[in-house]
Write a protein that binds this DNA or RNA. Structure first.
Lengths: 246, 246
DNA sequence: TTTATTATTTACCCGAGGGTAAATAATATG
DNA sequence: CATATTATTTACCCTCGGGTAAATAATAAA
């Protein structure tokens, strides 16, 4: 049903997939309209049409859910987006707070062939610069290790930064400044200090971040809960290395 | 007037500029419609609208001409297109017969910022892989040396390939095969042989091309009309090096 | 110079994807 | 439980950029 989705449909699919990641129920028309910064009526109409095309399950007044085919398409768009992010970051010197907007511009214009060329030139990266996994060519997300928000890491425990929230460029710049990028080892050295500050050990440095940033950083806890013992090192496959900041 | 032209308007501007290169009178509605592979009526309507926006001079039944502002815009699109061609060719291993289509896909999506980054990364190239000059950032074409179609080069004369027609991928593949790429030295060794074949000396090799290809190759004649004497070598500034063929 | 041919234009239609205003369903509140 | 509020939907509008059919102007041929 419906060959290649239009750029607009791709944007809807991408957004709905994103919203489904952080919501369990169906996605409301309102959330979609807000996310795309358009009015609700055109969103309703588009969702109905996309349901007819088989991308969504839609029931009046109840919101939408991606179908399997819709999810596959969404993941293909996401694959394009994230490969472009890696390319902009690694090959063109973009900092990781700049890549998102530029990838949004390019993701609907690039040919499948160029995409695969970029992917190959990059050595088939598995994660984007923020640590988000890159879906496979056939539209599936490989299962990833369980992660924990840094806010929920118990005091004393350490782990490896797996992914950071990429929605706020200001946050990304700050994280680059303090060295909280995917792949680094981080340790909660103490309970939250007064004035909402969280003391951390990032690699060898002691830093303190505002409590508000902790929920946006996701780590994989180290196997050994105590001591400096690190059993096997490579839980981080091929993380890229976004430069510090602009 | 009219801030950023839409992708469609950009395509019209680019085509009209191209047609003006090989036609002296105004460009007819028919030529535009044919060039864009659309029907004449929508072309008429669009040309009228573009005239209102100040891109074109249009008079009923008489065809169109680019205004200065229209030409400037067309050259900016061409700049984007050609820088992308150089990038695809040099940095991503595209052969010179593949770059055109891919550049067409990307030229409307790339941000000005990324474009300037590519331009800088390439060292501000002055010509695309086919030898066509790249317009400047402010939308002007630097004056270039006079060229002569290989078909019009007198027997015995030699010159340097400045530019080749980039409209036919098959022709481009053939030219790459025989080594007729921008920058090489070519010499007409004899008059056209029978069966429409033209004998040439390309660098050190003797080749013969079909007479039909000669009008699509443009050379700058060497100062010295005879002998192997080549006065000063660098009339070709920074030509890129498209690989042989796929 | 009249006529046939071709190019151009006008007057329409279409789908895509935005917008508003108003009706209706769902939900929260008194 | 009745009512106020909010979300959703329907019914309509718009622009953009394609399309056809038919009228008209320009041009070539008889």
């Amino acid at each position: 049903m419906s060959g290649q989705p239009s750029p607009a449909v791709q944007d809807y699919l991408k957004l709905i997939h994103h919203l489904e990641q952080t919501t369990d129920g169906p996605i409301s028309t309102q959330e979609v309209a807000d996310g795309l910064r358009i009015a609700a009526p055109p969103a309703t109409r588009m969702l109905q049409k996309m349901a007819q095309s088989g991308w969504l399950d839609y029931s009046r007044y109840q919101g939408v859910r991606l179908t399997d085919e819709g999810r596959r398409q969404a993941l293909l768009v996401l694959r394009t987006h994230r490969i472009l992010e890696v390319y902009l970051s690694r090959s063109l010197g973009y900092s990781w707070d700049e890549v998102h907007d530029e990838a949004d511009l390019l993701e609907h214009a690039i040919s499948p062939r160029l995409l695969e060329r970029l992917d190959a030139a990059l050595g088939h990266p598995t994660h984007d610069p923020h640590g988000s996994p890159i879906p496979t060519r056939d539209g599936h997300l490989p299962a990833s290790d369980p992660v924990l928000a840094l806010a929920d890491v118990p005091v004393g425990e350490s782990g490896s930064v797996a992914r950071v929230n990429d929605e706020d460029p200001d946050l990304l710049r700050h994280l680059a400044d303090v060295g909280l990028v995917p792949g680094v080892t981080v340790r909660r050295t103490a309970a939250s200090a007064p004035w909402g500050t969280i003391p951390l050990q990032v690699e060898d440095r002691e830093v303190a971040v505002h409590a508000g940033v902790a929920p946006h950083i996701f780590v994989t806890l180290n196997a050994a809960p105590e001591g400096k013992e690190s059993s096997t090192d490579p839980p981080s496959p091929d993380f890229n290395d976004p430069e510090a900041s602009s």
